[in-house]
Computed example of a mutant assay.
Amino acid sequence: MKTFSSIKQLLGMLSREQKLISEIFEKRKQLSYKYDHALELVEYNEDKLSSLIEFAVLRQNGRFLELDDQFLQFFEQILEVNEDINVSYINENLLAIHQNIVYYLQENSETRRYNYLRQVKNALRKIGVIAIRNVVDLKRNIDNTFKNEPNYKVKKAKLEHLDIKRNYISSLINLTDKLISGEEEQTFFKVATDEELQRIIHILKNQLNTCRHNLIDNQKQIIEYLNRLRAQNMMVEKIRQLKYLKDQFELRTKTNIEQVLRSENPLLFEPNPAYSLKLSLDQLQGDDNSLELIRKVHARQRSGKGIKQSVADTDLSEYMDSESEQVPQVNLEEVKNSFLAGSNNLFDFLQTYNFGMELSFEERLTVYCQLVSQYDAHFRLTDSYQVKQETEYLMIYPA
Rank of each mutant, 00 (worst) to 15 (best):
F4M: 01
S6Y: 06
G12E: 13
G12M: 12
G12S: 15
M13S: 05
S15C: 11
R16P: 10
Q18I: 14
F25H: 08
K27N: 11
Q30F: 00
Q30W: 02
S32A: 14
Y33C: 01
A38F: 08
V42L: 08
L49A: 03
S50D: 12
S50N: 14
S51H: 00
F64T: 02
D69E: 13
Q70G: 07
E83C: 04
I85V: 12
I85Y: 05
V87P: 00
V87I: 07
L94I: 11
I97K: 04
I101G: 07
E107C: 09
N108M: 09
E110H: 07
L117Y: 01
R118N: 13
V120E: 06
N122C: 09
R125P: 00
V129A: 14
R140M: 05
I142R: 01
F146S: 05
K147I: 11
N151C: 02
A157G: 06
L159G: 03
H161T: 12
I173H: 00
L175N: 11
Q186H: 15
Q186D: 08
F189R: 06
A192H: 03
H202N: 15
N206A: 12
T210Y: 06
D217K: 05
Q221D: 15
I223S: 13
L229K: 05
I239P: 10
R240N: 12
Y244D: 14
T255G: 05
I257D: 02
I257V: 10
R262I: 03
P266R: 04
P271W: 02
S276Y: 04
D282N: 13
L284P: 08
S290D: 05
L293Q: 06
Q301Y: 09
R302Q: 07
R302S: 01
G306E: 13
Q309W: 08
V311Q: 13
A312W: 03
E325G: 02
Q329Y: 09
K336E: 02
Q351K: 10
Y353G: 00
M357D: 07
E358N: 15
F361S: 08
E362K: 05
V367F: 03
R380P: 00
L381E: 06
L381H: 08
V387R: 14
Q389T: 10
M395N: 02
